[in-house]
Design a protein around this nucleic acid. Structure first.
Length: 463
RNA sequence: GGUCGGAUGGCCGAGAGGCGAGGCUCAGGACUGCAAAUCCUGCUACACGGGUUCAAAUCCCGUUCCGACCUCCA
C-alpha cells in the first residue's frame, strides 16, 4: 500500500516521505534499556512513542521487524552489582524483568526480537576484526580496542559537531589512545570484572559496539529506522554510525529520537527519587491512563511531568472510555476498528498525536450526541473510529491486557451493586428521595459511579 | 567554548503568515426530583524589543531566561 507517511529524520533535520528500503517491509532498531535500575517513565515514554510508530506502520500495511536490545553488561551494572552485593548477571536479569513488566503494564508490544549484548560477543569480535583489518580500529596491546575517529571519512554528522569542537575528556587516556577522542570498542577486564576471551585479550564490550553488531545481525547492513532517546544522539548513535560505516555498512536510513520527560523543566534523572517509576505511578492511575498520558504529547516535544497533568489527562481519557462503554451497551456489540481520515492525516504527519487527539475528542462529542438521539448507526460508526484510533495509540480499553481483577469477583460485585440499586429504584419510585440518595451516597463512597439514564441506572467502578 | 532544543491562556498541550486545535479547570445554560453523565455557551495566549508584510504566535534582526549533550568518568 502506498504510504503518505512523513517522518522527521534527525540526520537531516527535515520531515520527508517515508520510503522503505524493501517495499512493504520496515526494519526498526530501538535502543532499549541498560538494565541497571527500575524503569522510570522517561524510559517507558521512549517505548511508548516507538510502539505508536510501530502500530501505525502496521496499520499502514507494513510488515514490521522491530528489534529492541537489552544492554546487560555495562559499567553501571557492575557498579550496581557491587552496591547490591549480587552478581552482575543477577542484577541485569532483575532489572530486565522490571523493564519487561513496565512495558507490559503499558501495553507496549513485545519486540520481534530482544537481543542481549552478552549474547552477541561473537558478532562484536567479528565486527572489530573487520574494523582493524580496514584500518579504522586498533588494539594497543593492553586489551582495549579503539576506533580511530580521525581515520573516518565522516564523523559527527548526526549531531552536526566538529571533531575539534569537542571538549576533550578531563582525564582521557592518552597512553594507549592515538587521539583522546577515540572511543573504546572493547575494554580490557579489570581484576574481578567479567570478561570474554578475544584475540586481543580478556575483556568486555564497550559502550556502543553492541548496537551496531545486533542491528547488523537482525536487520542487515542497511535498515529503515533507528530510534532512541534524544540524549543518545551523541555519543552513542554517532559512534554506532562510525563503527558501522567504517565496517562498510550503510546502517540506518532514518534516525528518530524521542524527547524526554522533564520535571520542573529538567531532564528526569535518578536524583528525583523513585516516585516517577512506573511501578509507583500505577498506584495512582491505571496503566492505560499512564500510557495515554505518556503518549499524548508529540514524541519530539518534552513532556513536562506533573501529577496534576497526569490526573487531568486521566480525566480526559475516562471521558473517551465512557463513550465507548456506553456505545457498546447501546449497540449491544463491541465497537469495530476503523479510522477517520483526520486521524490518518495526523498520524501520517510525523505522528502528530496531539492533532489526532483533537480528532478523537471531536468524534466522542459527535458520538455522545448520537447516543442522545439514539441514532445507533452513527453511534457505531463514531465508536469504531474512536476505538480504532485508541488501538493505534495502544489504549484500547477493550484490550484484554487492560482487564482488571478476576471475572468471578466482578460478577459478584455486579450482583451486589444491582441489589442495592434495586432498593434505590424502589425508593425513588415512591418519591422517598432521602432514602434513595442515602443508598447512592453509600455506593459512591465505595468508589462506584452512578448515572441515571432514560434506560435505567448505569454504574461503573472508578479507579 | 561547540552543537541542539525550548519559552503559547489558571493548567496541560498543538499550530508555524490570514478565519483563535483539543483537553483539564472555572462560570452560565439545557437535561435531571437532586446528583452524575452528556450536550451548548462563555473566559482569559503566544518571553521581551525592533523590523518585513495588506496581514506575524508563525518570517528577519537583536535581547533575556530555561534545558540537553560534549567520548573507556556521563
Amino acid at each position: 500500500m502506498t504510504s503518505q507517511l512523513k517522518l522527521y529524520n534527525t540526520a537531516d533535520r527535515r520531515i520527508s516521505e517515508f520510503k522503505p528500503l524493501v517495499p512493504g517491509k520496515v526494519g526498526i532498531y530501538l535502543c532499549g534499556a541498560t538494565v541497571q535500575a527500575n524503569p522510570h517513565i522517561g524510559h517507558i515514554r521512549s517505548g511508548v512513542n516507538f510502539d505508536i510508530l510501530r502500530r501505525w506502520m502496521i496499520a499502514c500495511g507494513y510488515e514490521v521487524t522491530f528489534i529492541r536490545n537489552v544492554t546487560d553488561i555495562d559499567d553501571k551494572i557492575l557498579q550496581k552489582a557491587e552496591l547490591e552485593g549480587a552478581p552482575w548477571w543477577a542484577i541485569a536479569m532483575k532489572y530486565e524483568r522490571a523493564f519487561t513488566e513496565g512495558y507490559r503494564i503499558l501495553n507496549v508490544m513485545p519486540p520481534t526480537y530482544e537481543p542481549r549484548a552478552t549474547g552477541h560477543i561473537t558478532q562484536m569480535i567479528t565486527l572489530m576484526e573487520q574494523l582493524i583489518a580496514s584500518g579504522h580500529a586498533y588494539a594497543p596491546g593492553n586489551g582495549d580496542v579503539y576506533l580511530e575517529v580521525r581515520s573516518l571519512k565522516r564523523y559527527l554528522t548526526l549531531s552536526n559537531q566538529k571533531l575539534e569542537d569537542l571538549q576533550p575528556a578531563g582525564d582521557a587516556d592518552t597512553t594507549h589512545k592515538k587521539d583522546p577522542r577515540d572511543f573504546a570498542l572493547w575494554k580490557a577486564a579489570k581484576p574481578g570484572e567479567p570478561f570474554w576471551p578475544t584475540p586481543w585479550g580478556n575483556g568486555r564490550p564497550g559502550w556502543h559496539l553492541e548496537c551496531s553488531a545486533m542491528a547488523h545481525a537482525y536487520l542487515g547492513e542497511a535498515f529503515d529506522i533507528h530510534g532512541g532517546g534524544l540524549d543518545l544522539i551523541f555519543p552513542h548513535h554517532e559512534n554506532e554510525i562510525a563503527q558501522s560505516e567504517a565496517a562498510g555498512y550503510d546502517f540506518a536510513n532514518i534516525w528518530m529520537h524521542n524527547a524526554w520527560v522533564t520535571a520542573s523543566g529538567e531532564k528526569m534523572s535518578k536524583s528525583l527519587g523513585n516516585s516517577l517509576q512506573v511501578i509507583e505511578l500505577i498506584k495512582r492511575v491505571r496503566g492505560i491512563e499512564l500510557r495515554w498520558y505518556l503518549g499524548s504529547a508529540h514524541y519530539r516535544s518534552m513532556l513536562e511531568f506533573s501529577f496534576e497533568a497526569l490526573e487531568e489527562s486521566s480525566v480526559n481519557f475516562r471521558r473517551i472510555e465512557g463513550f465507548l462503554q456506553r456505545a457498546k451497551e447501546a449497540t449491544g456489540a463491541l465497537p469495530d476498528f476503523d479510522l477517520s481520515d483526520e486521524f490518518r492525516m495526523a498520524m501520517n504527519d510525523d505522528l502528530a498525536v496531539p492533532t489526532a487527539l483533537a480528532d478523537i475528542s471531536e468524534l466522542v462529542k459527535l458520538g455522545n450526541t448520537a447516543l442522545g438521539n439514539n441514532n445507533l448507526l452513527e453511534v457505531a460508526r463514531y465508536a469504531s473510529q474512536v476505538r480504532g484510533a485508541l488501538f493505534i495509540l495502544g489504549c484500547d480499553p477493550f484490550d484484554e491486557i487492560f482487564a482488571t481483577g478476576s471475572t468471578l469477583n466482578e460478577e459478584l460485585v455486579g450482583k451486589l451493586v444491582e441489589l442495592a440499586l434495586e432498593q434505590r429504584t424502589e425508593a425513588r419510585a415512591r418519591k422517598d428521595f432521602a432514602a434513595a440518595d442515602a443508598i447512592r451516597d453509600q455506593i459512591q463512597a465505595l468508589g462506584i459511579a452512578l448515572e441515571d439514564t432514560p434506560q435505567g441506572v448505569r454504574w461503573s467502578v472508578g479507579k
